[in-house]
Design a protein around this nucleic acid. Structure first.
Lengths: 207, 207
DNA sequence: CATGTAAACGGAACGCGCTCCGCTTAGGAT
DNA sequence: ATCCTAAGCGGAGCGCGTTCCGTTTACATG
């Protein structure tokens, strides 16, 4: 609960000008305070001023570190998403490499749905109001999906389809599926698999 | 530009208690003022206070009429979406009934993309921050798509797939496709058709 | 026309995200 | 040890969406 997102051990190879000691200390204080508050009340009942006060820093400091509310939420999510991303790239199959693309597509959906399910509120806040993040974790997901789709469904526009599939897993959309429409997680999971299978040409290789 | 969304001609068959004359007058004043301001500066540069001031009403009145900013945006969109909805249900083919489901799916995407393209900013604002509207026009679209999918692609969960397809057309997502990823409208259109065709079993009935 | 009342009104006030800017300080250079 | 300066700091302040509540008003009723 304390070692969330420690970014650079001491300094990072000359590129960034160095991170001042007080800045690092404040970053950790903020993350610790924010984690605690969010755990206690849920992020929708935690204001930026709450975090600043609990961390004993000014609001200016908070914003210089994390840019905005979405940035802070993203930082709080960082460890969880990083685990998932690592599993995608170098973890064991079927999430990681080593099996057919169609199967990995299914695994991606199921794994990501678990992630979303655990952290919806945070993920919703991490999505800036109105528009969608560019540099966030989504570009990696999109690339990953496009790669798998190119292999599993060569006849269609892989990048477009990757975005379309991803759109269904976006936090706000998932929240709507679950709470607005009242769908069970199992239904969403099954829907994802069905859709992906249909695109790759059926569950086996039939149809 | 004046006759946007006149809700009830005089009174509506006993259900609603009647709409007071001043209330109706204010509603029209607000819509007229809002339309003008939005046309002049774009909605992102029009605050609720701006609208209230231009319409010569208090902010309280504004909020009682339209609920919130998203509600106002929705009201401003009303005429355009209504046209499209009518075309879906009772217009000429291929948007309206009379041709194969696969073709109508394609037409829906193309028509809706035109609508979104014309009114993205308004549509983005009409989408409440974080979560997605329940009673808005989306439920009609979802039902419509599900119906067509049930016919065109019987092997998959039609409602789920309807939501997935719709998710790609959501204003924020579309904005990302167009501006964030820099995709041309033609590419998005082609992507939609390709995806829909792939689900219904190919452009002809081949594959 | 007089009266009662529910609906509508307006704008002050609140909460919150975010910015701005004058002051402080870490830490390299001398 | 001292100095210099860029980075960091804090919190007052701003804009805006939204709510609250005391006052006003349309209009049904008698």
């Amino acid at each position: 609960m304390m070692e969330a997102v420690l970014e650079l051990p001491q300094f990072d190879s000359g590129q960034t000008p160095h991170e001042r000691a007080d800045a690092a200390r404040n970053r950790l204080r903020i993350l610790a305070a924010a984690t605690e508050l969010v755990e206690a009340r849920g992020i929708e009942h935690v204001s930026m001023d709450d975090v600043a006060r609990a961390a004993c820093v000014g609001t200016g400091t908070l914003y210089r570190r994390f840019g905005d509310r979405a940035g802070l939420a993203l930082a709080l999510l960082d460890q969880h998403t990083r685990e998932f991303q690592d599993a995608l790239i170098s973890g064991p199959p079927p999430l990681g490499p080593g099996v057919a693309a169609a199967e990995r597509l299914r695994a991606f959906g199921e794994g990501y749905l678990d992630l979303v399910e655990r952290h919806v509120e945070l993920l919703v806040v991490a999505e800036p109001p109105g528009r969608i993040v560019d540099g966030g974790p989504y570009s990696l997901y999109a690339t990953h999906l496009a790669l798998l789709l190119r292999e599993a469904a060569p006849q269609i526009d892989a990048e477009f389809t990757a975005q379309a599939l991803l759109a269904m897993l976006r936090p706000a959309q998932h929240l709507y599926s679950r709470r607005g429409l009242g769908w069970s997680l199992e239904r969403v999971r099954a829907g994802w698999c069905g859709l992906v299978d249909s695109l790759s040409g059926g569950p086996g290789e039939n149809r």
